[in-house]
Amino acid sequence: MKLKLLYSDLKSDLEVIEKELAVAVNSSSHLLNEASLHLLLAGGKRIRPVFVLLAAKFGNYSIESIKNVAVPVELIHMASLVHDDVIDDAETRRGRETVKAQWNNRVAMYTGDFLFAKAMEYITEVQNTYAHEVLSHTMIELCIGEIIQVEDKRFLDQTVRDYLRRIKRKTAILISASCELGAIASGTDAKTVRHLKLFGYYVGMSFQIIDDILDIVSTDEQLGKPAGSDLLQGNITLPVLYAKNEPAVAPLLHAMFNGTISSDDQQNLLKEIRKSEGITKAKQLSNLYLQKALNEVKQLPANSAKKSLQNIALFMSKRKF
C-alpha cells in the first residue's frame, strides 16, 4: 500500500498545502525561485504537514488556519535538508541533483536561509505565543542534533544512548513538534496535545532508526542516493553501533575510519553489516518505539484521524524504502 492512500481523507487539504508551499517559496530573485522550486519539485513524503493536519483534527479544524503551521514545518524541514547537503557535500537527494550540486554552496545557504525566513513569516500568523516557544526550541534542538552529529563523526566509542539522543534532536523532535503544534493551533485540550506530542516523538524515533537501516540495506536506486552514504560520511548509525564489535565487521570498520579501506572492502563492510545482528537489533528497537507510539494513539479520543495516525505509524516503521 502507498503511504498517500493512508491519508486520502486529507487529499484536498494537502493540495492546499502544496499550493501554499509554491506560493511561500516564490521569490523576487530569479535564482532563489529556481533553487526553491527545484527543491519543491523533488517532492518528498510531506509527512510533517500530514501530522500537523491529523493532529489538528482533534480540535477545531480549519485548513485556512492550520496551513499556517503545516507549511512552515515543511519549509523548516526543506531548509535543513538544503543545509545538510552542504555539510555532507551531497550530490543527489531523492534521485535529483541537490541545490549545492546544481549551483554551489553559497546559493544553497541563501536558499536555506530564505526558506527558514519564509517559515517564520508563516508561523507568525499563529498568535499562540507558546506555539512559538515550541517551534523555536525545536529549531535550536534540531541544530544541536546536527552539531552533535558532526562532532560524533567517526567516533566509534559512542554508545546507543548517544545515538538515541542525537536522533531525538535530529528527527524526532520536529515530528513531535508537528503533532504538538497542529494540536495547539486547533485548540485541542492539553491532555490530547500531550499524547500527540509523545506519539510524534516515538514515531520519529522509530522512523529515523528505519531510515538508518534502509541506508544500509537498500539499493542506490531505491534510496535516490548512494547506499551506505551515512557510513561513508562517517555517521555511525544504530545498525553499525550494534554490529561494530562483530569479528567480520570490526576490522573493516576501523580500516574505514583510518582511511585505509579499499572501495571493494567498503562494499564488503556494507555486506557484513547487512548480515549482522545489527540490523535485527535495530529493527527490534524501532519496533519498541512503534509500540510506544501506538500506545499513545490508543489514548486519543476516537475520530477518523486516530486510525490514520495508527496506520501511518505502522507504515513508516515497516516500510522497505
Partner: peptide, 25 residues
C-alpha cells in the same frame, strides 16, 4: 562556495542556523 567539508566549515553552516534559532527563541 565549493567543498565546505572540513569540520569547521560544516559547523559554520550550523552556527548560522543556531544563531537564527536563538533570535527566534
Amino acid at each position: 562556495e565549493q567543498n565546505a567539508t572540513s569540520r569547521e566549515q560544516q559547523l559554520q553552516v550550523l552556527a548560522g542556523d543556531y544563531y537564527s534559532g536563538k533570535y527566534y527563541q
